[in-house]
Design a protein around this nucleic acid. Structure first.
Lengths: 340, 340
DNA sequence: CTGTTAGCGCATTCAC
DNA sequence: GTGAATGCGCTAACAG
């Protein structure tokens, strides 16, 4: 069975090519009997609709691109899966690329997607992404790009968590514990999410008795467990022993737990630990991890809606949408008591 | 800048279309000066190579499809990321679909990929996948399908872990601990991986003093933490308290740890726990989790190589490749002592 | 070495 | 209601 075309189908069914085409698109102007005959012929011949040909003709591809950094972080995995779901529901197919937080890989992937004529791109930008290089690739085909979870430009759509609010809510909780000091550990240095979370923490701690020095939090690392271990080691090796360690993300927190134990410090007892994201794992850890939920599924849904809108109407102003976070208090902070 | 074609470029550069086309493909038969002129024109006009048009003409799309069940399991995430990497290195773009272990979603995604003219498909089959429905979709375009990590047919290529060996190695370790009984918990009922792991465990335990009854292991569940909690609850509620709980996967094990603790049983002390996959998290848990590494990156690399070979030469016999597993012994079993 | 030509499979327009 | 003709942007084959 090779290359059965609409042509073959229409001939077999004894109708014209354009009739067969209309049947495909479910036109109501075709008599039942005719369209049944066509459908039968398609089934018998093993006809496969060739989207490339259709897309070329209609000059849209019904595909969307998604570039994320690393899906081994379940937070990004959840984001990715929901975007795929939303795209499929809207009739789009998804092309993916994993940048591994590398701007050059990301550029290659953007270029590929543009050549593949994607109708829109979800971009969870790699660390250090700048507007100019992205535009250079993307503007040639004027394909809309939506910034996901991190942003680097005000001129493009953005959907992400309300990181400032997330930081504030966490800060208020930590200060209510009676902690005297806190640091933030981990996360990519040049990411809007990290900057915003620090800002939220700073404003949330302002006026409280918690000493939070963002410069002490200069332990920027890769956004995974290895980064967490490394970051906490760096801080403790400076002789700093804060009452509360705030992880950039749950993935980072996992490494923080491990490194603390290597040093015979028990999280939740010797030091309180809190984090962002609230992936499923957070509450399964021992001790269960206090985390600010940032709802990747909601972000993904909103992002899909926004990008599809943009595709329909490119004249809109750039949109921003922030998803409200929720603090999940668990034993890693709740159990902890101030040293006396 | 809208729709700059090779035509426009060649006109601007003062060469013929075929010359411009040859420049694109890096032909050495074009004089430097000419090709520079062409490249300049492309840059100035903002030309974008249209792969759809090229693919249509050459009747191959340079895209591959990947269908996996759920990437929130880091094991599948690793598999997915490496496949993307290998595909990109070979010049292919990747279309993805997440079946969520649902055969109907999977069928839809297969259909979409076939219509998108993918050149090959990596399929990590959903539970209950059967050959006939898959072939019905896929054979119309005779696109090759490679079975990834689970299989449902001997007539298609397959790459996965050597699950039988993995089970045997784990069984031997567990019996060396002096355990008197073991059960397997979790995992999708109709998956080759589960069946094979049980077979490996059975043969590995044969002749030892460990009582392992696969029918006791009928606690099949979804392949995630919720499944682990549910499965272990089901077993314990029957009054069974084995010396060793073997999780279908690390993702499942996480839920087993949590449920044991809810019942005031400490993993690694009151009961030994072991698992398969050895995702990064396994050694970061407390206690660190004994697991049989199954190397998703190696599987993915091998799978990419095999599928690309198949695309080049569809006449080969179906291939099977098993990746050798390695037992990682950690405290969740090593720490445990038999009850006296 | 360059230029011209004819499709790839579909959607769409216009006569009929 | 149906059928023929045109072109999306590219590749490949062939003539100059």
């Amino acid at each position: 069975m090779n290359k059965v075309t609409l042509n073959d189908v229409s001939r077999a069914a004894g109708v014209s090519r354009s009739t067969a085409s209309l049947v495909l698109r479910g036109s109501s102007r075709i008599p039942e009997a005719t369209s049944d005959r066509v459908r039968l012929a398609m089934a018998e011949l093993g006809y496969v609709y060739n989207r490339h040909a259709a897309n070329m003709r209609r000059s849209q591809s019904m595909t969307l691109g998604l570039i994320v950094t690393d899906i081994r972080n379940p937070y990004f995995a959840g984001l990715t899966m929901t975007i795929e779901e939303a795209a499929h529901e809207a009739g789009y197919t998804l092309l993916v690329g994993y940048s591994r937080d590398d701007v050059e890989r990301q550029a290659l992937q953007l270029e590929t997607m543009v050549q593949q004529q994607v109708d829109g791109i979800f971009l969870l930008p790699a660390e250090g992404t700048e507007l100019a290089p992205v535009c250079q690739i993307v503007d040639r085909s004027s394909v809309p790009v939506l910034q996901l979870a991190r942003y680097f430009s005000e001129e493009m759509d953005y959907v992400g968590p309300d990181n400032i609010l997330a930081g504030q809510r966490l800060a208020r909780h930590v200060s209510s514990l009676g902690a005297a000091s806190a640091v933030l550990i981990g996360g990519p240095e040049y990411s809007s999410a990290r900057t915003e979370r620090i800002k939220g923490l700073e404003t949330g701690f302002a006026g409280s008795s918690v000493a939070f020095d963002a410069s002490l939090s200069a332990a920027t690392t890769t956004n995974n467990a290895a980064g967490g271990s490394e970051g906490v080691a760096r801080v403790l090796d400076q002789g700093i022993w804060p009452d509360c360690i705030i992880a950039y993300s749950d993935a980072v927190a996992l490494g923080i737990y491990a490194e603390l134990r290597r040093r015979n410090l028990e999280p939740g007892r010797d030091v309180s630990v809190a984090s962002f994201d609230d992936i499923a794992m957070a509450e399964l850890l021992l001790p269960p991890l206090t985390s600010v939920a940032t709802y990747p599924e909601l972000i993904a849904r909103k992002a899909a809606e926004m990008l599809l809108n943009r595709i329909r109407d490119s004249s809109l102003d750039p949109q921003r949408s922030l998803i409200e976070p929720a603090l999940k208090i668990r034993a890693s902070t709740a159990q902890w008591r101030p040293r006396t």
